[in-house]
Nucleic acid binder design. Sequence first.
DNA 1: GAGAGATTTGGTCAACTGTCTTAGTCAATT
DNA 2: AATTGACTAAGACAGTTGACCAAATCTCTC
Lengths: 193, 193
Amino acid sequence: MAPASLARQQTEEAFLDAAERLLVSVGYAGITTRALAEEAGANHGLVHYYFGSMENLLVRVLERFTERLIARQRAMYAARDVPFIEKWRTAMRYLEADREYQKVWYELQALAWNRNELGERVAHVNSEWRAVLTEAFAGPHERYGIDMPLDALVSLVITFNEGIMLERLSGIETGQADLLDWIDDWLESKQAG
Amino acid sequence: MAPASLARQQTEEAFLDAAERLLVSVGYAGITTRALAEEAGANHGLVHYYFGSMENLLVRVLERFTERLIARQRAMYAARDVPFIEKWRTAMRYLEADREYQKVWYELQALAWNRNELGERVAHVNSEWRAVLTEAFAGPHERYGIDMPLDALVSLVITFNEGIMLERLSGIETGQADLLDWIDDWLESKQAG
DNA sequence: GAGAGATTTGGTCAACTGTCTTAGTCAATT
DNA sequence: AATTGACTAAGACAGTTGACCAAATCTCTC
């Protein structure tokens, strides 16, 4: 690619970044070409020139975001030589801190509920998450003698994490600390024992 | 407020029903006054005449829906003289069957993510659900000797239910049956023991 | 059955939407 | 210097939106 396309690449990224910011602040339904262009500091005509359509742009946002999400999930649990409880705590710290990231992710999911062609990508992230967790939990599952099939355990962990994120988007936190604290204590007791 | 005529009340309900149907089929962002009126079989001018604005109409949808949701949750677990496992199975059957109901609920939540004034209503449903479950689980929690504070258990149950519903909206079902089957077996074993 | 008020209708309105065109810029190549 | 082709800015375009309104219609009361 010619050097001129570097500038273009940067502008395209600026659009995608701006779209994520707008997902956080107004949701997918509130994103318009003009608002997006202003947020990105670019001309609104470029949305069509670069991406063909607003729809395509959102697909690109989803693609980029899901790639990052998968990389992140892999990095979180894949590390060797780190005690399981440390990985768990890192994951729970992300769950605690990255509210904006979660808002982007849930807005994209809500978008996908009504655009069938996007559903596959959401499902792909989920299956990657499942794969990563299945590997990470295989050891502890056996070691701690958890009385539940591994697949069921993984489903439980994923779904309750999803639920916690969903609740927090509505400002609900009741009981979550009780649950997370208990799990942490339980893991610690297993560690020590 | 003038005593609305029966006919008017029915038409208003027709609008609210139509809105729920459109939430299922196109999502909150796709609802327009004209499409709504057509779906309801009424004149589009009535949206403004009856509800003042599209916004208000959606608030009414949310109010009506959350009232029903709470009534339903109460009915599900509040029944006396029904073994806990039966209540659980009924709840899981709803979780299995009522996909459209869940789509409406999640669309309304997604709407509320970007309209602060609606958040309170979502939180209210959650706290009602929590109250109902807390009461319903108090007995089993003690009886089965579950090694986890009641509040934590309730949070776990609520959040994993929320996660299951969220996943299913994206067509994801992997592992859910494993989890639900294991829980059912576990409950049954406790019942028998 | 006349009159008054409530309801319903079909249409208008300005604002806004995504898309697309046009005119022009600019750097690289010839 | 001229030509080229990628790029950009500005605005035009047709269509849609929520809101609103005047006139027509209906439903009462008297």
